[in-house]
Design a protein around this nucleic acid. Structure first.
Length: 556
RNA sequence: UGCCCGAUAGUAUAAUGGUAGUACGACGGUUUUUGGUGCCGUUUGUCUUGGUUCGAAUCCAGGUCGGGCAACCA
């Protein structure tokens, strides 16, 4: 297999490890979400990285739920995370939970106490924070730092036994209160929380902190490369300190820059606010950057994987253009989406010279990108059609290749028509366009010799079905809502959703399949929404087509 | 005024001491029964100042700018 793409820095590290036969050539990564929310496109980057690297080097990837904080975690999230990873196309080796290791972790903590490297501190959260000092001033010990090993052992056991209320005591590592790295100033290992855990129930009332759970879990699983985001860089010395003092398998931590995308937000906290405060309909609202939102919007797993491949991996802060994500989904859907016709803002077109009582069935190819056009479907034609209101102009500029008085266009898959007349209501709104058709110009057997610049889509009025169509735009009006003044929610785009209640769609679209992509010709890519029923069809616009004409109009 | 990470076209990302390339975007052309797609082309870049070297985006030193770190969150 030829690998044209150059390696990223993580792959280089692994290749170096492999060439040194570190870990006997074994590569084991893990994807470690906390089940406290839904996965988003930023997690997709991490998933593609962790699973992708393992695949590339014949390794494996564990799915590990980092569930050490019982108050935020729920089974609903566990299930959605599992589904999203599968949907993206990845298969994990083992499904594990940090909570599986609570007993082991407790034992490791006891071992540290016995070595005189951990102590129980009775200070309040405020007192501890105060005694830690600041980045420029060293911390000072609390009175409890000098406790004996025996006392610590007993106290920690009592903590586990539930003899103290929440917050009464914590277990801390005894490292260095004067370290320039704040994370080394006797970090907390355990806190008391009398809370129900989604897996361990009420068995525990003390729970390990991230720093005393994550690296240890990596080590227990013999993870070789523990890949996380940049904000954990300052934790790495602590990660390594625990491994060294505990003398356990030396997993190593590597960090990359998390994904940021413009016109959206990517923190779980903010996404949760959007959901809870009903700015969106749920975690899977098609405007959300969540995996479930993108899925409902009509994004394909391949397009997201491809996106993650294209954005690359590095250690510098980044803000990726939404246009790249859009490119990736268009690229994918262009190859596969069935072409269909739908009219969203209809105006009536009447063919005055079409023989009375005549009816025709036109043929439309399913996909011009596919071999032999991907087959074809029937499209009923008639003397009365719906066309897009924007495809007619009373006073058309010279580069407007559509309909206007005296102008000719091709009706896609049908005839060339010429506009002879039109009607307006009292408000000047066009109510009807009257055309004559060229009988010899039928698609596939055109002998008219007439060439027109424009082709427009249409739906036969007599045969049209109706559907609700939901048009989505970017969720925020500014590129980086998180960096703006004030609350990020002030920057929500008020026009992020437009609902068209009664669009006209060609009859074949009545059979539209959920999960398939459709291209509504000249309009964009669409998919069937979860809310859709055979009686009341609902489509989501995944993304528009590139629109050179819209740009042209915008310029002038 | 501590410690850590980073800085290459508009946005990302390569070049690992030897011709600064690729993708997206933008712009222009061409093809087209989708103003889509495809194809062709154009545009714009090594944060700064020194040093090492025949040669520096790359190595070294100082500076500047951006980000992170003082949760009983992860």
């Amino acid at each position: 297999m030829t690998e044209e793409r150059s390696s990223n820095f993580l792959e280089e590290i692994i290749e170096e490890d492999l060439s040194n036969n570190r870990n006997d050539g074994r590569v084991l990564t893990r994807f470690p979400p906390e089940p406290n929310g839904y996965l988003h496109i930023g997690h997709a980057k991490s998933i593609c990285l962790n699973f992708g690297i393992a695949q590339k080097y014949n390794g494996k990837t564990n799915l590990r739920f980092d569930d050490t904080n019982p108050t935020t975690e729920e089974t609903e999230y566990v299930n959605s995370i599992r589904a999203d990873i599968h949907w993206l196309g990845f298969e994990w080796d083992k499904e594990l939970y940090s909570s599986d290791y609570f007993d082991t972790l407790y034992g490791l903590a006891v071992a540290l106490i016995k070595k005189g490297l951990a102590y129980v501190d009775d200070s309040s959260a405020e007192e501890i924070a105060l005694a830690k000092g600041t980045p420029t001033e060293p911390g000072i010990p609390t009175p409890f730092r000098a406790r004996s090993v025996e006392d610590n052992l007993l106290l920690f056991e009592n903590m586990k036994a539930g003899k103290y209320p929440d917050g009464a005591k914590v277990l801390r590592a005894k490292i260095d209160l004067e370290s320039p790295n704040m994370h080394l100033r006797d970090p907390l290992m355990y806190r008391i929380k009398h809370a129900h855990h989604h897996r361990t129930g009420d068995k525990w009332c003390i729970y390990p902190m991230y720093d005393f759970a994550h690296g240890q879990s990596d080590s227990i699983e013999n993870i070789t490369h523990s890949i996380c985001t940049l904000e954990f860089v300052p934790h790495r010395p602590l990660y390594e300190w625990f491994i060294e003092k505990l003398d356990i398998f030396p997993s190593r931590q590597y960090e990359f820059a998390r994904l940021n995308m413009n016109f959206t937000v990517m923190s779980k906290r903010k996404l949760l606010q959007l959901v809870n405060e009903k700015y969106v309909t749920g975690w899977d609202d098609p405007r959300m950057p969540t995996i479930s939102g993108l899925r409902r919007r009509g994004y394909t797993p391949a397009s997201i994987r491809n996106f993650c491949e294209r954005i690359g991996v590095a250690k510098r802060e980044n803000l990726i253009d939404l246009s790249l994500l859009e490119f990736c989904i268009r690229e994918d859907l262009n190859k596969t989406a069935l072409r269909r016709m739908a009219v969203m803002d209809p105006v009536k077109l009447v063919i005055t010279n079409y023989p009375e009582g005549k009816a025709e069935i036109m043929q439309g190819e399913n996909n011009p990108e596919a071999e032999d056009g991907g087959g074809s479907r029937d499209i009923p034609f008639g003397p009365e059609l719906w066309i897009e209101r924007e495809d007619f102009m009373e006073e058309a500029p010279k580069k407007f290749f559509r309909l206007g008085p005296g102008l000719m266009v091709r009706l896609k898959n049908a005839y060339i028509v010429k506009c002879d007349d039109f009607m307006k209501d009292d408000n000047g709104r066009i109510t009807e366009i009257r055309c004559s058709y060229i009988p010899e110009s039928k698609s596939g057997s055109d002998t008219s010799g007439i060439h027109v610049k424009g082709t427009i889509h249409w739906v036969s009025a007599r045969h049209a079905k109706t559907a609700e169509i939901r048009l989505y735009d970017r969720l925020f009006r500014v590129e980086n809502p998180s960096s703006e003044e004030g609350d990020f929610k002030e920057y929500i785009n008020p026009d992020s959703l437009t609902v068209i209640k009664n669009a006209f769609i060609e009859p074949d679209l009545g059979n539209a399949q959920p999960g398939l992509g459709y291209q509504f010709i000249r309009k964009g890519y669409f998919s069937v929404d979860n809310d859709s029923t055979p009686e009341a069809l609902v489509f989501n616009r995944t993304v528009t087509l590139k629109d050179a004409w819209a740009k042209e109009v915008k310029k002038s």
